[in-house]
Design a protein around this nucleic acid. Structure first.
Lengths: 401, 401
DNA sequence: GATCGATTGTTTGGCGATCAAATTAAATAT
DNA sequence: ATATTTAATTTGATCGCCAAACAATCGATC
């Protein structure tokens, strides 16, 4: 009995793999092994990867020829020929841009995430002006590192942008209109430009660089004016459809709560952001003297023993932990990173948050680690480095290192 | 300057890939292409995959030899030699077990998820008894299909179990103690046993079998006594650390809400499960006649015009939609599947849920599709088929078909 | 009814990548 | 100076895909 088959299928996509795919994979594997364990000898690579030493030699030869890797000094061993150590070539640099509501930080970093130079400018009110200033400074930076190879530009900002169109579409704290930052900067500089939300950049930084004890399910909670979350699930960034995931900060904890900038009521960030703590503080003050207190001031007041400040901080911490119920029950990560100025007073926040989180683990579930990330500023910038490097080193989760 | 390198690394793990990995990948690709597009000719496969016809021929020869694929009838074409159509060998079968609070369903399915035989038993009060009865019936089932090859056993149940130890650890609606189902059944039958949470099984069923318009970010919300969620993120099931993800049903929507079985207050499932609707209904009745109404009865009453029933259903629908804020804002899926008895009255639930969801999309975000899944019973069972087949066809997300 | 055209499916030789083993290189201990 | 040990390279074999030629099969056409 004859059956209807597909008549003609356009052969646009290549799904099958050929022999070169193996080389691609192993090449990325070797590159990442060097990245995470440098310095490392060829023999070490062979042992760690399980590949033959001959294969490693060929791959490394390639990587050196293309100046991703450099031969280092020879190491000392108790017996036998001394191995030559391999490391990443630090002459390849990345330009990182960290956009925040108040200021923008630009920096030049090497492939290991170490910063060579750095500068700051106040954040312009309009993105057009920001683009002009950024382009000018980036061009100067490029000229400043003539002998280096500039790999690309990574930009992180506190907002969401459509991953299809690269347009910034939701940045309530930045107060910029919808716009496309990528294209104008890419065209003006001739470099690749990759963008990422701030919370995601923090996640990238954490899992790319300092994986002392790597986990494949992790959530970063960034607390400042608002609350953002970066989701690392199954060893990959979870960006959601068109990059819109991660707005747990705009989920209501209490439908009767105060109004939020997003239009809803009682969102998590209304109860647990820096702004919320200041609100608690001001409400508890009889006088109006607290009006111009910053969040950092509040932390200092708390450490000086100010009862109202202590209470405000405590309340914020409790709500932070309470909101993590969404993350603990819904996503069950192995680790939760907490990022923001609050980590400076971790002795105050840590115990409260951990107690709340522990109370919320469901029967049979395991308690996630709650880890403060202290060097916030650098974290985001280092995230942009990882962002740019992913093109060459492979997506996270692609290669298990 | 000599540097310290790794002295000796145990070569336990093989990270690097060899040439055979390409064959493995392409083999899985071809197998999945046949699965999703059968019937299909070798020439079609070559066009779709981008591989050479010669390569396809060799791979298909393998697959036929190992009885995964069978040559079918020749098809008709306007010109030229008629192609032979390929399809999956339906002599390979899977035993699926769907455990529910009230009854357990066992079924034998072929690789296409079509069921040959099926039987039901009431759910025993204790897992030990359940294991005894299941083993006995499964053995009979195996004997019943002598000429077929039994690939394995897939079990789905309404609870969480530790993916490391395979122990059931959280099943509030099933009321079974912590236990290991897998090992005794596997040992007694000599077959592979794979287990999965009910919501995840529904997701598997949806993305494995009827991908009319495939998406890579999807959330299934299963509504019955409680609310469970299955997360499909970046084209993979998101099980979280030790398989504990997906309990969005136990996140509070209102801290002042009624107590939940989990120990917390005001959880989503307290407001939006079948049980919640019945509570709304009973509370609004002056008499006690409503005590023995089932959820299905309630839906019928609503369709008969009973005002209290309509209000109860409407309230449940609103809360269902409201709770989806967590999913919409936090995960931003492209599609939300709604599963449970409520889909029988989708004309009542659908519009309310969709309106709530639409109201909750953040600026710049896109509204997820809300899709009811009507054949719940079969969905879970078919999910178990996918579960067992993943070992041979590859994990979801591994191969893009 | 034989030939041509078109399409499917198979066969053949070549290339690229890894493997396994032998070889060369370099350093320490005897 | 020689033996030993480990690192790194070289060499030939194997495996998998590709490209192109070839064989098979069917409809249309002369």
């Amino acid at each position: 009995m004859p059956v209807d088959l597909i008549k003609r299928v356009p052969t646009t996509t290549m799904l099958g793999h050929s022999n070169e795919a193996v080389r691609d994979f192993n090449r990325r594997l070797v590159l990442n092994l060097i990245r995470t364990r440098q310095p490392l000898s060829r023999a070490d690579l062979a042992r760690v990867s399980g590949l033959q030493r001959s294969t490693i030699s060929l791959i490394v030869e390639d990587l050196i020829k293309e100046s991703w890797v450099v031969d280092g000094p020879t190491a000392k061993l108790p017996r036998g020929r001394h191995p030559t150590s391999l490391r990443l070539n630090e002459d390849r640099v990345i330009i990182g841009v960290d956009v925040r509501p108040s200021q923008i930080t630009l920096a030049v970093a090497d492939v290991n995430g170490r910063f060579n130079s750095q500068e700051q400018i106040p954040t312009p009110n309009h993105p057009d002006q920001a683009i002009r200033e950024l382009v000018e400074r980036i061009k100067r930076m490029i000229q400043g590192c003539r002998d280096k190879m500039v790999e690309g530009i990574g930009i992180t900002l506190p907002g969401r942008f459509d991953t299809d169109s690269n347009r910034l579409v939701f940045a309530p704290n930045l107060k910029w209109p919808e716009c496309d930052l990528r294209t104008p900067i890419a065209e003006a500089t001739g470099l690749d430009v990759v963008m990422e939300n701030a919370a995601n950049a923090s996640v990238l930084s954490a899992v790319w660089f300092k994986q002392e004890n790597p986990v494949s399910n992790l959530v970063a909670v960034t607390v400042s004016e608002g609350i953002g979350t970066g989701l690392f699930i199954n060893g990959q960034l979870a960006r959601g459809f068109r990059g819109m995931a991660g707005e747990f900060g705009h989920v209501p904890l209490d439908p009767q709560g105060p109004a939020c900038t997003c239009g809803s009521r009682g969102c998590w960030e209304v109860f647990a952001s820096n702004r919320a703590a200041l609100r608690y503080f001001i409400e508890s003050q009889s006088t109006d003297t607290a009006d111009k207190t910053s969040f950092i001031d509040l932390l200092i007041l708390a450490d000086q023993g100010n009862k109202s400040a202590i209470d405000a901080v405590d309340c914020m911490a409790r709500y932070l932990g309470r909101g993590m119920r969404m993350i603990v029950a819904g996503l069950s990560p192995e680790r939760i990173l907490v990022i923001g100025e609050l980590t400076r007073s971790w002795h105050r926040f840590g115990p409260v948050i951990e107690a709340e989180v522990r109370a919320q683990v469901l029967p049979g579930g395991s308690v996630p680690q709650v880890v403060p990330v202290h060097e916030d500023g650098m974290a985001r910038l280092r995230g942009t480095v990882a962002l740019v490097l992913q093109k060459h080193f492979g997506q996270l989760g692609e290669v298990a290192v």
